[in-house]
Amino acid sequence: MKNYKEVVDSVFERREQYEALKRRKRQIMFRTLTPICCVCLIAFTGVGLLKSGIFTHEIPASPSESISSGTDSKNPQSDNTSSDNGKNSSQPESGNNEYDNVSGSQASSFDIGGVVYYNGRYYAQKDPARKECVVVRDKKIGTGNDFDGTYNYECLKNLYEEHGFEYSSEYYIESEIYTVKDNPDLLCVVLSNGGFVILEAE
C-alpha cells in the first residue's frame, strides 16, 4: 500500500501528464484548425467579393442613365427600341434592306428624340405616340458623325455641356444613317449597340 507521500507524488505526476496531454491536444487542434480557418476565411471572402460584383466587368453607365438619374434631361442619342426588341420581332434578320420594327409605345418613354440635319432638312425622332410601323432601309448615307445632330459626337458633347453635364467618349454610341425606301421623309439610324431609330423630316 502507498503511504501518503507516494499518493501525493502519484497524484501530482498524473496531473502533469494530464496537463501535458491537454497542451498537446490543444496544439494539434490549433495546428489543424488554423489552415481550415484560413481556407474558410478565403472562401468566404471570395464568395463575398464575387457576390459584390467586384470581378464582373462594369459597363460604364450610359449618358441616359447618368442624366436621367440626376435631372429631367433625356439622352437624345438613346434609341426608342431596344436591340432585343428588334431581334425578337417576327421580321427578317437585320441586313441592308431589312425590315425594322419600331414600337411607338416604347418610344414614348423618351422625351427628347434624336435629330439629324441632312440635305437641308431636319429629321427628328418619330413621334413616340405613333403606332408601330415598318420601314425598309435603303442606302447608307453616312455615320452619325457625318451630320449635325444628336448622333454627332461633338454636337452631343456640346449639348451635354450646355446643360451642365460632362460627356465622355465612352458614352458615345456609334451610329449609321440610312435612307428609307420609298419614303424620302424618313431616315433610319442604326446604332452600334443594336438599336435603331426612325427620324422623320420636320
Binding site: 500500500m1 502507498k2 499518493v7 502519484s10 497524484v11 501530482f12 498524473r14 496531473r15
Partner: peptide
C-alpha cells in the same frame, strides 16, 4: 478490493486536482 479502492481513492484526488 483494497488495491482497487486505493486506485479509486487516487483517481478521486486526481480528478479534484485536475
Amino acid at each position: 478490493n483494497i488495491h482497487i479502492a486505493e486506485d479509486l481513492m487516487e483517481d478521486t484526488f486526481v480528478r479534484i486536482v485536475v
